[in-house]
């Protein structure tokens, strides 16, 4: 049973002051997040990532379509006992301390007082707030508030953790800690669904990603497959090629950049690679390195978002057929 399943999930917001008209912010989203996987929801601002997460949590209501969590309808409030949620740019009560807030959060899950104290202390230690756990939250920096947000999302030891831009507001060290924390959750076979526009985070953490743009699903698949999807080009570095060799390469249309004695070539296809290597062997030029330049998640993302058209249809078909 998937942890989360959305079927043709659509959301319209009413916009306008006097004459309200619907504005579609999410359209026919079909997603499945399997139990135990780390799933990334990627997309630029306004893509519909937060809307999707809020629909899953029942903070907003679908215009049409369905959301099922652990096989049950999203309206079942008791389901949230198995979920931990970190909102985007979280905010807390100014006059309560982190310890008090975690105690409060734990009590909403029905945890006993002793258990709340034990978990709060452990989580504050884990997110690096143990020293400041007893001071009011109004004195916290943005990064500290984000850490508290993470701690409260884990107070119930959830099976499903939903994080809306978890790295937001964190310094590089904080981001590293959050990455480790997500990897910890992954090791514990917890399901993690998080939204981000930081692609390197998704690349490091996710088993699968979905790319949203203007409320529509543009791509869906396993990170491994996206990264292994193809070689965009091959980089060949030659040691001190003669002017004659360079002329031959130029006549082939190979782009070359000279750095000191070395020339770095960017070759587009395999046939061209063979021809370049043939020339190098024939002219006795030393080949320093041959490096396939693979498609990165960023390349994939940019193709999907900027061009707004499917560029890896084969991959998409595979991904969708797996889903079906």
């Amino acid at each position: 049973m998937p942890a989360i399943e959305t079927t043709e999930l659509t959301k319209d917001y009413a916009v306008g002051f006097w004459r309200k008209r619907p504005k579609r912010v999410l359209e026919d989203l079909n997603l499945e997040v399997a139990s135990g996987e780390v799933f990334g929801l990627l997309g630029p601002n306004g893509a519909g990532k937060s809307t999707t997460l809020k629909l899953i949590l029942g903070l907003i209501f679908p215009t049409s379509g369905a959301v099922r969590i652990f096989g049950s309808d999203w309206r079942d409030v008791s389901l949230r006992a198995r979920i931990g949620f970190l909102p985007e740019n979280p905010s807390f009560y100014d006059n309560l301390s982190a310890e008090e807030f975690l105690n409060y959060a734990g009590s909403l899950f029905g945890l006993a007082a002793g258990e709340r104290r034990r978990r709060a202390a452990k989580l504050l230690e884990q997110v690096g707030l143990a020293e400041v756990g007893d001071i009011p939250v109004r004195r916290y920096s943005k990064g500290m508030v984000q850490r508290l947000g993470l701690a409260q999302a884990l107070i119930n030891d959830p099976e499903l953790v939903i994080l809306d831009e978890p790295m937001s507001g964190l310094d590089p060290l904080g981001r590293r800690e959050v990455r480790d924390l997500i990897l910890d959750l992954k090791a514990q076979k917890r399901t993690v669904l998080f939204s981000t526009h930081i692609l390197s985070d998704a690349e490091t953490l996710c088993d699968r990603v979905a790319i949203l743009h203007r409320g529509r699903l543009q791509g869906l698949g396993e990170i491994g497959e996206i990264l292994a999807m193809g070689v965009a080009s091959t980089e060949i570095v030659l040691e001190a090629p003669s002017p004659g060799v360079q002329d031959s390469l130029a006549s082939m249309g190979v782009s070359a950049v000279r750095t000191g004695e070395r020339v770095r070539l960017s070759v587009q296809d395999e046939a061209e690679v063979e021809r370049v290597l043939e020339i190098a062997v024939r002219e006795k030029v030393k080949v320093v390195s041959i490096t396939p330049v693979r498609l990165t998640l960023e390349d994939y993302f940019m193709e999907k978002v900027e061009k707004g058209k499917p560029v890896r249809e084969k991959f998409d078909r595979q991904a969708l057929s797996r889903k079906g």
Partner: peptide, 14 residues
Amino acid sequence: ERRTIFNVLSKPVH
């Protein structure tokens, strides 16, 4: 306004 409500209503609270 301050979005503190997300921290409460995302939990099993009617």
